[in-house]
Design a protein around this nucleic acid. Structure first.
Lengths: 141, 141
DNA sequence: ATACGGTCCGTACCATACTACGGAGTCAAG
DNA sequence: CTTGACTCCGTAGTATGGTACGGACCGTAT
């Protein structure tokens, strides 16, 4: 185990350093999220250490709710000299609006479920359960 | 179009009345969410009108954030005489906890994105974008 | 020199919830 | 009795984000 991030790394080293699996690295390459690295004569991928950073970038963006498709766009924006920081901010703002929509939907679900559980004593057979009854109602909401 | 929900309905009538596609009805049957209906000699499914209700039940539960797997359990609870209303309430409460987890995650995402957009003037090239920089940082959070 | 682990590739598979397709048979209206 | 809409079935495809497999080859430590 010669640890030196100086020249080039194998796919396993990159995956390990970035905290993902080897298969995930190959998957990101196939999906165009990660540049195809040069190969050794044997066919082994040779990664520059910056590849680890790229993968961490992907992970962070994913944590912020971006899909891989959106992350691909983000990475493209970064490379394209015609785009500005405002283009990136637009993406971030769109994602915030996106999240707001999901928050609203979840809050509504939650309120409906809370209402239902409040109506349910917890005793009695399921045939008299107000929760199931509510789901079963013909005309509702 | 003889509309009479008196005896039995075809799959198309059921799907239409419930607001789903024919394929969805067959899908729910395959997935065990919908009882297999009797057939006519030709093989055509013959649905009792209550099937429409069952599908609407599924739709409402889905709207509340239950997965088809969870809905299958909910339907099983209803049929099993040993289960009580409390069992159903437990499911609902677990789903609320579930939703709370998602809400928290989304709120955190949102806050992080808002922070990033605040740091971004919108002007300048992407090479100087604080949002992309933040995603790219080696040591972070 | 050989063994063991890493890497190669293509393909298939996981879960979720459907949706589409093709070819044959059926039903009902005109 | 013909026509057009509906239904049958099994299989395959959609999108998302990976994970797993298998057989062959590579690299290095002993």
């Amino acid at each position: 185990m010669t640890e030196a991030a100086l020249e080039s790394m194998t796919i396993g080293q990159v995956a390990n350093a970035a905290g993902v699996g080897v298969e995930t690295v190959r998957f990101y390459e196939r999906e165009g999220l990660l540049a195809k690295p040069p190969r050794r004569p044997s066919g082994y991928r040779q990664y520059p250490p910056v590849a680890v950073r790229r993968i961490r970038f992907i992970k962070r963006a994913k944590d912020l709710g971006f899909t891989l498709g959106e992350i691909r766009e983000l990475l493209a924006l970064r490379v394209d000299p015609r785009t500005t920081c405002g283009d990136v901010r637009d993406r971030a703002e769109a994602k915030i609006a996106d999240i707001d929509g999901k928050l609203l939907a979840l809050q509504r679900m939650r309120a409906a479920l809370v209402d239902l559980t409040k109506a349910c004593s917890g005793r009695g057979p399921t045939s008299e359960c107000p929760i199931l009854d509510a789901l079963d109602e013909e005309e509702d909401r």
